[in-house]
């Protein structure tokens, strides 16, 4: 009649705490790359965890809770963007750029973390977020498709383009610093 008793509530909280909290640092990292602002990322994480706590009874024990909470985060962020009128629906220009990259640059490995971060930040958001979810957070294509509510084929094609754009940016940064002797040699030979 009055809802859950205190001990039941405490049990539920303890379960949630045990399952969800180990993933909070990862979720924060996903949030900050999603919104690119610390305060906004903290708000997004807080809202995500509140929603996850409310819906915890729907979480299937033994499945990937990190993917489940990331899906909630994308849902919460989508709502937030719609409210702010910042939801981008069409990105023809980015699609076009990605489609037209035919050449595959060679990549040197003598890059610093800072240069790698600069390169990934240059990749358009739509492709970058999928590359980060797959290659940093190691979610499966299926999990990403569910989070982003897009077909798995879209995930795969965006990933393919996103990774290619990232490699292109890496090559471009490395070239600025002149650390691609091999590539320079190839160009000279041509």
């Amino acid at each position: 009649m009055f809802g859950l008793g205190r001990s039941e509530k405490e049990d539920r909280w303890e379960n949630f705490e045990k399952e969800a909290f180990p993933h909070v640092p990862d979720l924060f990292r996903i949030a900050i790359w999603l919104v690119r602002d610390r305060a906004e990322a903290e708000d997004l994480l807080q809202e995500t965890l509140s929603q996850a706590l409310k819906s915890f009874h729907r979480y299937e024990q033994g499945t990937n809770i990190r993917a489940w909470m990331t899906k909630i985060m994308y849902h919460v962020n989508g709502k937030r963007l719609r409210k702010l009128g910042r939801l981008r629906l069409v990105e023809d220009k980015e699609e076009l750029i990605a489609e037209t990259i035919a050449f595959e640059p060679s990549i040197d490995q003598h890059l610093t973390d800072k240069e790698i971060l600069t390169a990934i930040k240059q990749v358009p958001e739509k492709f970058r977020e999928i590359v980060l979810l797959a290659d940093v957070e190691e979610f499966s294509y299926k999990e990403i498709a569910e989070m982003m509510r897009v077909p798995i084929g879209t995930v795969m094609s965006r990933l393919h383009r996103g990774r290619k754009l990232f490699r292109l940016e890496l090559a471009s940064i490395a070239r600025q610093y002149g650390i691609f002797p091999a590539e320079r040699r190839e160009a000279e030979q041509r």
Binding site: R29, W33, I107, Q109, L111, D113, K114, I116, L117, I120, V131, L132, D135, V136, F166, R167, L170
Partner: peptide
């Protein structure tokens, strides 16, 4: 490249 990206993003 993938390992470097992962470590750069995680450690920043």
């Amino acid at each position: 490249i993938r390992e470097r990206l992962s470590s750069a993003v995680r450690n920043t």
